[in-house]
């Protein structure tokens, strides 16, 4: 027990030092946060332009579509902030710094995840949160205990889903090494798929983004449940309550993949 507490203290000390390091160069940090606000706004541009042309898309009006956008982006930005830097793994492998991590008496994934906390991602999370707050009442969502539980569950569950995708993509780097872009099709591709109504996707694509990479669970399904809509065939709206459950198999797969990757790794003996 005491050992566990000492472990946590070590993680905490590293995270606090990383946060302090980023806040030291204030202008640089402000520019980074601002650029990430820009990333959030540029993602919103699609919703804006599309709804300038049409009134409903995939069975959703503009405010419900904004909710889908907001939940997906909030979960992705939080996951990116927490573990997005796991895709630095190839650099650690190439430079031999991974061996130093492996020598310390803490799990490798825990160390890598806490080796950085990308506070600049708060910019994109902030845009998502603002859109969420503006869109909730306009989409006709009544404040209630059930609504709060659904929102909390989907943000936490969605963040967990994207964290798992980042870990899985990171684990793949043990095999690919130059494959940062392979990670993109998982993580950024999943985020991109999550922020549009899944009802638009043709059958096989919808199936993949629900049951393989559970992108629909992050935002579209919870919004169906929040706004009392029925989904397309094969996507009943009660699934919107299951976002935290959807994160479980992805995490299991990610951790198995990670373990296999670490076992495969052999140091260069630096």
């Amino acid at each position: 027990m005491a050992e566990r507490r000492a472990d946590l203290a070590a993680y905490r000390a590293v995270l606090a030092s990383r946060a302090r390091a980023q806040l030291t160069y204030r202008t640089s940090f402000a520019a980074d946060v601002l650029a990430n606000v820009g990333v959030g706004i540029s993602e919103l541009a699609t919703v804006y332009v599309v709804f300038w042309r049409v009134d409903t898309l995939g069975g959703l009006d503009v405010w419900s579509a904004c909710l889908v956008f907001a939940l997906a982006n909030l979960a992705f930005a939080l996951a990116d902030l927490l573990v997005g830097h796991v895709d630095e793994l190839p650099r650690h492998v190439r430079e031999g710094t991974l061996d130093a991590f492996l020598l310390r008496p803490l799990p490798l994934l825990g160390q890598l995840a806490t080796s950085e906390v990308s506070l600049r991602r708060l910019g994109r999370a902030g845009v998502a949160l603002a859109v969420l707050v503006v869109a909730l009442p306009r989409a006709g969502v009544e404040p209630s205990a059930a609504t709060l539980a659904l929102l909390g569950g989907s943000v936490l569950g969605g963040t967990a889903v994207f964290c798992a995708l980042f870990v899985a993509a990171g684990a793949l780097q043990f095999w690919l090494l130059e494959g940062r872009e392979a990670a993109n099709s998982f993580t950024y591709g999943g985020a991109n798929a999550a922020q549009h109504p899944a009802s638009l996707y043709p059958g096989p694509l919808r199936w993949v983004f629900t049951y393989v990479v559970p992108a629909s669970f992050v935002a579209y399904l919870p919004v169906l449940a929040l706004t009392g809509r029925t989904g397309p065939a094969g996507l009943p709206s009660w699934l919107g309550w299951c976002t935290p459950l959807a994160a479980v198999p992805v995490w299991a797969a990610a951790l198995l993949l990670w373990r296999a990757g670490v076992r495969r790794y052999t140091g260069a003996g630096s």
């Binding site: 042309r53 392979a182 991109n192 109504p197 638009l200 694509l205």
Partner: peptide, 27 residues
Amino acid sequence: AATAAGALANTVFGAVKAAVLTGTVVA
């Protein structure tokens, strides 16, 4: 490997974009 991975990412994004843009035109 990076080129193949990039092509996969382009294709996944393309599928989502095609669905969203054609959905808009139909609507």
